[in-house]
Design a protein around this nucleic acid. Structure first.
Length: 125
DNA sequence: GCTATGACAAGGA
DNA sequence: CTCCTTGCCATAG
């Protein structure tokens, strides 16, 4: 298993209940700045044991319409966590966006300057 | 190695 | 806002 894949799954596993992250965000934190598409693919294949539904696209729309093995849609799974999703499968991503703590970033053994890059993009207010 | 394929992102029309 | 185009890069064949 590649380290990228391992990181992605590890990161997704860190997303707390009631919070969400974008594919691009997860890819960025995993160490591949433009690997958003790979994150989607990885979750598609290996997401069974991870909270994959907490990952959506950066436009705040769900890009999945099929059901998971529990027969519940991503929308339902999010609604159960208190995240408001409308009929068009849209939600306010900034309102629920997960902001990983320094401890999580450290655990992934990222370079300090790379962490700085992430901070600038997702922590600057 | 090379090509095709995306559960994406960002910018332009 | 919605569509379209480009850029991306890990995987599968």
């Amino acid at each position: 298993m590649s380290s990228f894949k391992k990181h992605v799954l590890e990161i997704v596993n860190e997303i707390p209940h009631g919070k969400i992250a974008s594919y691009g965000q997860v890819a960025l934190i995993a160490g591949v700045a433009r690997g958003a598409r790979q994150v989607g693919h990885i979750l598609h294949v290996h997401g069974r044991n991870y909270p994959w539904w907490r990952v959506i696209n950066n436009a705040g729309r769900l890009s999945t319409t099929f059901l998971d093995n529990t027969n519940r849609s991503q929308k339902d799974l999010l609604l159960e966590e208190g995240i408001n999703v409308n009929k068009n499968l849209e939600l306010d991503i900034e309102k629920y966006r997960w902001r990983p703590g320094p401890d999580v970033l450290k655990k992934l053994q990222l370079e300090d300057d790379y962490i700085q890059k992430i901070m600038e993009k997702y922590f600057s207010s």
